[in-house]
């Protein structure tokens, strides 16, 4: 009987609705607008509605999440920004759609390349958010950002990111990717220690 099938169909939806209220009741105040609430709604045990109330609450992105890349700079004690990038060009070489442009500086006196990029551009209208640049950068300099709220009215004015827009502090990096950051710092410390040993010896 066709009617029965329709009733069964309506029953699934009703069940979801009821389960949503049951879960809301169980979760109490913490169910909405709290991070535990969000986690509970994305858990595999959830039976009711799973809607995230963006923009009031945001689904947290995992650490490895990648959107457009950014460049990490370290801040020296006297507040100077020091880009980690050495303009080695590996990211520009490996980028699949070739959307990275780097101008390597040369020393005016010696004509030798200097290890800071004079300019660094990423065309986000071409970037495919693949993360290859971050994966193969040997200096932990280019990383994938978590900031996805970058909609604009005018792409010609805003969609080619330059050094100023790309540069973000190491503290920010440590905040969005704590595990990666910690691992890289550990490696760095080890290297520094080894180097120190060598110089001592």
């Amino acid at each position: 009987m066709t009617g029965l099938a329709i009733l069964r169909g309506l029953w699934i939806t009703l069940k979801r609705l009821i389960m949503t209220y049951v879960e809301d009741f169980k979760g109490g105040k913490n169910r909405y607008y709290t991070s535990e609430g969000i986690e509970a709604r994305r858990d595999y045990r959830v039976r009711g509605a799973i809607t995230i109330q963006y923009p009031e609450e945001k689904l947290p992105v995992p650490e490895r999440f990648r959107y457009v890349p950014f460049l990490v700079y370290d801040e020296t004690p006297d507040g100077e920004r020091k880009l980690r990038c050495t303009s080695c060009g590996i990211c520009a070489r490996v980028c699949p759609p070739q959307c990275i442009w780097i101008v390597r500086g040369t020393d005016a006196n010696t004509g030798k390349p200097i290890p800071t990029p004079l300019a660094f551009y990423i065309d986000v209208d071409v970037c495919m958010n693949c993360g290859m640049c971050a994966e193969f950068c040997p200096f932990d300099s280019i990383k994938m950002d978590h900031d996805y709220e970058i909609a604009t009215y005018d792409r010609f004015a805003h969609h080619i990111f330059d050094l100023e827009k790309l540069a973000k502090s190491a503290a920010y990096y440590a905040k969005i990717r704590p595990t990666d950051y910690a691992a890289e710092e550990a490696v760095r410390r080890e290297k520094a220690a080894k180097a120190a040993q060598k110089t001592e010896a």
Binding site: S87, G89, A92, R93, V94, C95, P96, Q98, I100, W101, I102, V103, R104, P113, A119, Y121, D123, I160
Partner: peptide, 15 residues
């Protein structure tokens, strides 16, 4: 073939 030479070391950005 990629990589293109115009990207580095003298990458004047263009569309």
């Amino acid at each position: 073939a990629k990589p293109f030479k115009s990207r580095f070391p003298d990458g004047k950005v263009y569309r």
